[in-house]
Design a protein around this nucleic acid. Structure first.
Length: 228
DNA sequence: TGCCAGGCCGGGT
DNA sequence: ACCCGGCATGGC
């Protein structure tokens, strides 16, 4: 007796399903490209709510600029972003990034994104404290470049629906998605935002059954273990 | 209460 | 090429 097994859902299918059930997410929630870049660093392994408070404090202190973040005393910036966690590391990362942004592009978004996206990605990855997800978030959400952002939720959801095993390298998952979707920044923007939203709402670590998840009726694994 | 959040780095195998 | 501990606050 052969067990009938449905194939895993397609990337497009997941995207369409999420968009229909959750609607547009209007990302990135920031008022300027530089704010997006700062937020991308601050939100590393951190709840967005805590990041919002840090950004509000930076704004109130007139510290949300490359020149301020590049030159102000470390302890001052640390105090302002404390709510975002890892505040010593992140203050240092904001400083290094801001200095790079000033010296390389004169703190000009226009100049920065005149650079070829994949070349710019390489430059960003050379900056300590900026890894692939942060770099891609900056490219997509600050520069409107057509790149897909892979994160922990993407891994978890794709693994539960058997598009990946779970331990594939970042670039492989990114390519998997980008090979199957149009090179459209609006779409890639929406897709990542939707994955984060559905991940936050339904697809928790300790809850492999993912109750009420809009992807619930799509084929998925029943394993309990989770790579994160 | 413990677990988790929109990662990344450095040291060890 | 992995694997792992460290980094830290705040919400549920």
């Amino acid at each position: 007796m052969t067990r009938i097994r449905r194939r895993q859902p397609s990337v497009r299918q997941i995207y369409k399903r999420l968009l229909r059930s959750l609607g547009p997410q209007h990302w990135w929630p920031a008022h300027s490209p530089f704010e997006v870049m700062v937020g991308a660093i601050l939100t590393q392994a951190t709840n967005w709510h805590n990041v919002e408070r840090a950004i509000a404090r930076l704004k109130a202190a007139h510290a949300l600029s490359a020149s301020a973040l590049a030159t102000w005393r470390a302890t001052t910036v640390q105090r302002l972003i404390r709510s975002a966690g890892y505040f010593k590391q992140k203050a240092s990362r904001l400083r290094v990034f801001s200095r790079w942004y000033l010296t390389t592009y004169g703190a000009s978004v226009r100049r920065m994104f005149r650079t070829d996206p994949w070349l710019l990605r390489g430059q960003l990855l050379e900056i300590p404290g900026i890894g692939p997800e942060t770099a891609d978030s900056i490219l997509l959400y600050a520069g409107n470049e057509p790149v897909f952002v892979v994160d922990g939720y993407t891994r978890r959801i794709f693994r539960r629906h058997q598009l990946i095993v779970g331990d594939e390298p970042y670039d492989a998952i990114q390519r998997l998605v980008m090979d199957r979707l149009p090179e459209d920044p609006k779409l890639l923007n929406e897709f990542h935002a939707l994955l984060v939203e559905v991940g936050k709402r339904y697809c928790h670590r300790r809850d492999p059954d993912c109750p009420h998840c809009p992807l619930g009726d799509l084929p998925r694994t029943r394993e309990v273990t989770d790579h994160g």
